[in-house]
């Protein structure tokens, strides 16, 4: 009987301790949302990836580079500007420069968690480019979320 009561009081103390534990509230998830572009050789049959010897990518009117002199790149992952509905990129393939414009519709906020908040996701509407190195562009996945999937294929002739 005495033990019964002692045990009972022990649990009271333990439960107060347990109630005092607070979980960490730091975001531990990757919140990066990028649009992925793959480079392909233009063929009539299957899409064959190509590697670009030297690749430079920056946003229009941005001084900092997303990719600077990347070697043997067969794809790039670049962020869309969530505050606008258009993002323009300058892509330099070896010595040839093209401008790529992506038009998109912002989606409703994509909620992750209390710790991480939301991410901005977009639906790609249209992609246009200059045609120096780029022959044509194809959208393969319109939804841009935090999943590493290819959204656009750039074909080189």
């Amino acid at each position: 009987m005495v033990n019964f009561k002692l045990f009972n009081i022990g649990v009271l103390l333990f439960s107060v301790l347990l109630a005092g534990c607070t979980s960490l509230d730091e975001c531990r998830e990757d919140k990066t949302v990028n649009m992925k572009i793959g480079f392909y050789q233009k063929t009539d049959l299957t899409d064959v990836t190509i590697k670009v010897d030297s690749l430079w990518v920056n946003g229009l009117e941005k001084d900092s580079f997303l990719y600077s002199n990347s070697k043997s790149a067969n794809s790039v992952s670049i962020p869309l500007n969530a505050a606008r509905q258009q993002s323009d990129f300058i892509i330099k393939f070896n010595n040839t420069t093209d401008t790529l414009s992506v038009f998109y519709t912002p989606n409703n906020a994509y909620f992750i968690s209390f710790e991480c908040g939301c991410i901005a996701t977009q639906t790609i509407d249209e992609v246009i480019s200059t045609n120096h190195f780029i022959d044509s562009v194809r959208i393969v996945q319109r939804e841009v979320i935090n999943v590493n999937a290819e959204h656009i294929k750039i074909f080189h002739n």
Binding site: G59, P79, A82, A109, C118, I119, A120
Partner: peptide, 14 residues
Amino acid sequence: ILVQNEYWGTAISQ
């Protein structure tokens, strides 16, 4: 809830 874009330097508070 702040949605930040480091590269473009934008932030939207919701």
